[in-house]
Each structure stands twice: as structure tokens, then as C-alpha cells.
Design a protein around this nucleic acid. Sequence first.
DNA 1: ACCGGTGTCAGCCGATCGGCTGATGCGGGA
DNA 2: TCCCGCATCAGCCGATCGGCTGACACCGGT
Lengths: 223, 223
Amino acid sequence: MSPAVTPPPAASAGSTAPVRLLVCDDHAVVRAGLLALLASAGDIEVVGEASTGEEAVALAARLTPQVVLMDLQLGEGIDGVEATRRITATPGGPHVLVLTTYDTDADITRAIAAGATGYLLKAERPEELFAAVHAAARGRTVLSPPVASKVMAQMRAPLPQLTEREQDILAQLSQGLGNREIARALFISEATVKTHLGRIYDKLGVDTRAGAVAVAKERRLLR
Amino acid sequence: MSPAVTPPPAASAGSTAPVRLLVCDDHAVVRAGLLALLASAGDIEVVGEASTGEEAVALAARLTPQVVLMDLQLGEGIDGVEATRRITATPGGPHVLVLTTYDTDADITRAIAAGATGYLLKAERPEELFAAVHAAARGRTVLSPPVASKVMAQMRAPLPQLTEREQDILAQLSQGLGNREIARALFISEATVKTHLGRIYDKLGVDTRAGAVAVAKERRLLR
DNA sequence: ACCGGTGTCAGCCGATCGGCTGATGCGGGA
DNA sequence: TCCCGCATCAGCCGATCGGCTGACACCGGT
């Protein structure tokens, strides 16, 4: 009749063995802070830390953690989304729990599409983080409330899905180039540039190039 | 003839009395991480934590820490720069050590102008953080290497210094508004808007509104 | 075999933009 | 007091943009 639901650490009936965790964040101070913080939660064992996406992928394979805590913004090399994709590509691999600063539509979508099990904001309470790590270890999805809201909102109004070409145009536009220059850069005619721009305006809900650049930068629609 | 300048709390021979520190960061997880991390450095005592600028200002006055560790990006209310300004406004007040993610020109300049004693990046090694806290307590300036470089670079080529009004215009422009709409929003004539825009283009080194928005977003020239 | 999505291109036209010259008023610092 | 930076406004003009209509070609799925 033992209650058995609560997690007593040292007991022999090990339904509560510490969760093996890999931490990936490019900021050394943040990483060290997370390590120190997670160490204070007795039932989590940090088995490794990575400062780049490549390192995270390699360590995930070598250390076989149950959960990878992943920041999406990684300075050098591949970004957190790509790292998440590669880590979750392995069949028996670890679950990836995204812990990041931004709740941008594009980031959330890309992370989930890449196979992330959960998406937590750094603004969350530490207890939520601990709970999320355990939830992720069991494969359960955990989303921060603001993130959950965004996801729901996206269900109703799917986010601007730009085609490859439109992203090319938008990238050039974000350099401040004129139609003629964009045309030359992409080896197409000005007419085509204007056609694409019109569709981009539609999708982003704007009607000027400045507005398009603003939305693009805001919602991080560019690589 | 009592020395009376240094404030050793309890110890008699205490050249290494713990530095009294206040931590301010809007992300609960990061804050908790920093606390856990700093606790591991024996000679630093975290006397309080704040999640908003207002709270930091109030706690700085009440808890009289020697150093305030300040993030510049604070979600709600006043930002880190303003909080730094208010904290350092007090004559005998604590030193402010900025610990943030970005090494943006504008952020650095504004933080230093606001009275920050040091500017560290979260990408720095934790040991650097510990050292910086102690340095800040003694009033010494500490800059992360990339930040130091930027500061030097700015000495040579001062960053685009937009006037208040130009920032107003730029803010409207970043909403994608046309000249007529900007004029109406700011209660001025279109001619004036065009005049300001021309000067903004000059200062930012662009010649289109899309380019101006791109640079503004890139270099974080907006509130 | 048809159709929708995508990418390409053309021409037209009114609205807007960007550069220019020039002018006024105000405030602060030399 | 004079000058400079800042903000305000006017008019002009060529270049560019944004919206429109219409067209062709490729591809993949039904």
C-alpha cells in the first residue's frame, strides 16, 4: 500500500532513478547556472554539457542521456533546431526539451517540427523546469503557457508559409535593395520580383517593403 | 583615524569578506541558475533577487548590496539601462555590473552612459563572472573582450546617434507606415517626415526605408 | 488528363518615395 | 551676440513602388 506516487530519491524500488540530462547552451554563464540549479534538484543527473549544436549531437550519441535541454540560439555552427533534428533522428535517442528565451512563432513551429518533445521559456519558474525534465524523460509533451497559446493560435491561423523563392526575395529586401537590384541578384526580371513581393505582402499582412522587413525580422522568418 | 572606508561586516581580518550582491534578471530559470552558480563561489553572498527593473531599484536601496548584477533585457516595465541609471544615481549606491546576452553597440553605449561599472556577456566563463563581481565591488571596470573591442571601435567611428525625433520617425517606419501616416501619427507634415528620413538614411548608411528598418532591427536602435 | 501551386514574365498607371534647394524658429554654448 | 544643432515646413522632379490584369511553363497529385 505504499503511496508510490511521490518520488523518494534514495529508495531501492527505483522508479525514481535520476533523469540523465545533457545541457546545451552557448552561454557559459547560463550553462554553469543551469548546472548548478539542476544539481539542486536531487533527481536529475547532468551527464554532460555542450556549447554548440555539433557538440550536443555528438554527446547525445555518446553519453546516451534521457533528455537534452536545448537552447535554440547557438552562436556558432548549426542552430538548436538543426541540432534537435539530428538528435531526434536517432530512433532510440533522447527526448529534446527546448529551453529558450523567445516564444517566436517560427521558432516554436520549427522546433516542434524538428522533433522537440517540449518547449519551455527561460522565464518559467525553476520548478516547472524540473517537472518538465521529468515529463520529457517519459516522453510527455510540456509547453510553457504562452507557448501553448501560440501553438493554439497557429492552429487557427497557420503562420505565413513563404516559398523558397519568396524567402530569397525577402532576404534581399531585408538588405534594403530595390527591385532592380534584387532582380539582378537573383537573375530574374523586375516583373518577377514585383510578383513575388506582392505575394509576400499578402502572406505577411503588410503593404510596404518596410513593413515586410519589420515582420520578417520580428517573426524571424529568415535563416 | 579609523579606516572606515571598506565595509567588512563580521570578520576582523576580513580582506575576503563576501561581496554582497543583488541579482536582476527577468527570466526565472536564469535567475535561479545564477543564484545557484554564485552560491558555489564562497566569497559572494547573494542578498536579493529582482525580476523587474523597478524591483531592482527598490531592493538596491533597501538591501544596500555592493554590486548589482543586471540584465539589460527585462520584459516588463523599465529596462536594464533605466534601472542602472536610477541605481547609480544614488551617491553612495552600489556598482552595477551588466551581465547580458548581446554586445550591441547601442546597448553598450547606453549602459555605460547610464553608469554601469562593467559589461559582461553571458557567454563569458563563470570564473570571469566571479572575478568581475569582485572587481565591480572595488569599483573597477571590467569588460568582456568582445565588448572592449566594440568600445574601442566606437571611439574611432561613433555609432549612429539618432536624435529623439529621428527615433520617433524610425519607430513608425518600422511599423511599415508611409510618410503620410507617420506625419499624422506624430502631428507633423509630410515634408518634415521626409526631412527626418533623409537624415536617418545618412546616419544609418542606407538609402531606402527597407534598409533603414533592417539596420534598426539589426543594431537594436529602437527602445 | 486536368488542376493547383510555384516560378517566370509583360505592360500599365497612379501613388509614393528620395534627393534637392531653401526657409523659419528655437535653444544652448562659445 | 553669433553660430550651430535640432525641428519644422515648402515645392519640385525623376525614380521607384504597389496594384492590376493577363500570360506561359513546369511539376506533382487526383
